[in-house]
Design a protein around this nucleic acid. Structure first.
Lengths: 336, 336
DNA sequence: GTGAAAGCGCTAACAC
DNA sequence: GTGTTAGCGCTTTCAC
């Protein structure tokens, strides 16, 4: 039989009210009864029923994480770190795959609000604008991770894509490359920012941007990237280095080069973005730009917990800085 | 302001009980009032408060998934498929990383029972025997996935590791290999089963098992496997084919071979297990044994939902059959 | 300092 | 067929 607050009260010879006060550290209770009650709680291993207290308007200590696809290594990592830090703070996290489908997004949000989750972390993609706006209007605790809505008053944690694009390109420039291509994901803020960083780096180096070398792709798969990269490599304008705006795109590019018999890094340097595990198992190992995923997950959870607990209405935008990870796929320009 | 069942009752001119009955499809209600109430619910977009009904002993429609590490691609896939099917059945899933730590396992289970989850799916590793036994004794709904406890009365969904080991080995045999090594994970049932399948296949082919070719490893990382594989390849007994009992181990083996200048698949065939995404990005692409992860996740969720809803005490052990996926890392024995 | 009473939103017996 | 009553386990006035 499950213990209730009344059982503890009876055992301690006090009322349930008093026990409740002790548990929640409220009101004035004498040290003596307080200690006694605490001891009994300990002894009986009493655990308050979260449901009942939530019904009275308290927290459920449960948050929801919405991600497009749990099997994608990047999202899986967010999940991992958010959950781990949430655990420390006493939050459980329910995971929701949206598949990028606005209907599913709405369904999840409705259902989980019904279940009284304390807040949401939304990762990378969220298409259902009305639902998002409503949530924000109601001041429901939300944090975006790796997703920006500059026009909406909502807290977020992102990697600095502009800077990431800049340092990736700068790295290639420092190796002597001048003709540098880029393959980016279409219609995403992060993709656009990375391109901007790329252009800025070229500009700073006094190189005019050649739009023929800027490729965008709306199907960010290895295969899709391979096709596009092949086109680029086969054009008259073959670059000596390519910046793939995520590791998937970079790996597709590697496959394309290999297929054409172009040596990496002798004839073509390639750099990716995200620094996923894949970088280490391709050949040659892929240089990449690392965003501090661990830190991002933690900060997002932290931010959300603050909004939930303190009800402080503060919304922050945190941008974390990327780092260059140099491996074997980038090398000095090989002048013939 | 949140709507309650009373608001609906008032609107319909009936009692809350009647509304409750309509929602839960219980008792006898006239078609007329039923329709009226349904319509009002629809119109007002009324959503019953899950907390309140759970407090009365009903389901929370929330289950928990315990996995060692959400960032591991295999577990991430379980998660994905469990969540997706759970969604269809109306269950939310809360994700818990245990990191293989018995204390964390216990902590999660206690906390989540406090939050009244309806059941648990436990994946791959669970070390806290007492907690597991207690859960089973209490008839708390649990399903194990990719984890066996033959001695415990608990439902489970696993891939058939024995058969998997058998067909991987058989594939190598069919290519003419006779000296076949195996690298397996130590102290896991799945590892042991895969080794058994391997031995059986050799036996059936009339080949005596050479224990020098059977390597076990307790740190299943690429690096760890690389070291062990190097030892094996450098021994006088160099095999012409190696079965890595998961893709990580197989990839470690690939790296070892490359490091030693041994050509794959000309001089050494390698096959993995699990058919992860990594198979397609290594070079040459890795042949592997695919377990139907998608199906496993779905079945586990299905099983659990049945136990939760029907309270039928039936426990099943489901074993799903693996399939061979041939890529470029395995080839006919190259006789010199 | 402490407790009695009311009620969060829902469901289950039982009466009518 | 439908409503009344009681209560799940907790928290919160407010009185003592």
């Amino acid at each position: 039989m499950k213990l209730t607050i009344h059982d503890i009260a009876k055992e301690a010879g006090v009322s349930a009210t008093t026990v409740s006060k002790v548990i929640n550290n409220k009101g004035r209770i004498s040290e003596k009864t307080k200690n006694k009650i605490m001891q009994i709680i300990e002894e009986f291993q009493y655990q308050p029923n979260v449901l009942a207290s939530a019904l009275k308007g308290k927290s459920t200590y449960t948050i929801a994480l919405l991600i497009p696809d749990a099997a994608n290594p990047i999202y899986a990592q967010y999940l991992k770190h958010i959950e781990e830090y949430g655990q420390e703070l006493g939050f459980s996290v329910v995971m929701c795959s949206t598949g990028g489908d606005p209907k599913k997004e709405a369904k999840h949000i409705t259902l989980l609000r019904q279940k009284h989750v304390d807040g949401f972390i939304i990762a990378s993609i969220f298409k259902n604008e009305p639902v998002l706006k409503q949530l924000i209007e109601e001041e429901f605790p939300i944090v975006l991770i790796s997703l920006q809505r500059p026009e909406l008053p909502v807290g977020s944690v992102t990697g600095d894509d502009y800077l990431g694009g800049y340092i990736a390109t700068e790295h290639l420039l420092s190796l002597g490359h001048r003709k540098i291509g880029i393959i980016a994901e279409e219609a995403t803020i992060s993709g656009t920012e990375r391109i901007k960083g790329y252009k800025k780096a070229l500009e700073n180096a006094g190189i005019k941007v050649d739009e023929n070398l800027v490729i965008t792709i709306n199907e960010p798969t290895i295969e899709g990237a391979e096709v596009k990269a092949k086109e680029l490599l086969n054009s008259g304008q073959r670059p000596t280095a390519i910046f793939g705006c995520n590791d998937i795109l970079a790996i597709g590019t590697m496959l394309a080069a290999k297929g054409l018999g172009i040596g990496i890094p002798d004839e073509l340097s390639i750099i990716g973005f995200d620094n996923t595990v894949m970088c280490k198992i391709v050949e040659p190992q892929l240089s990449s730009v690392a965003i501090p995923i661990h830190e991002m997950g933690k900060q997002a959870m932290e931010l959300l917990a603050q909004r939930i607990q303190k009800k402080d209405n503060m919304k922050q935008r945190i941008s974390l800085l990327p780092e260059l990870v140099i491996r074997q796929s980038t090398a000095e320009l090989n002048e013939k």
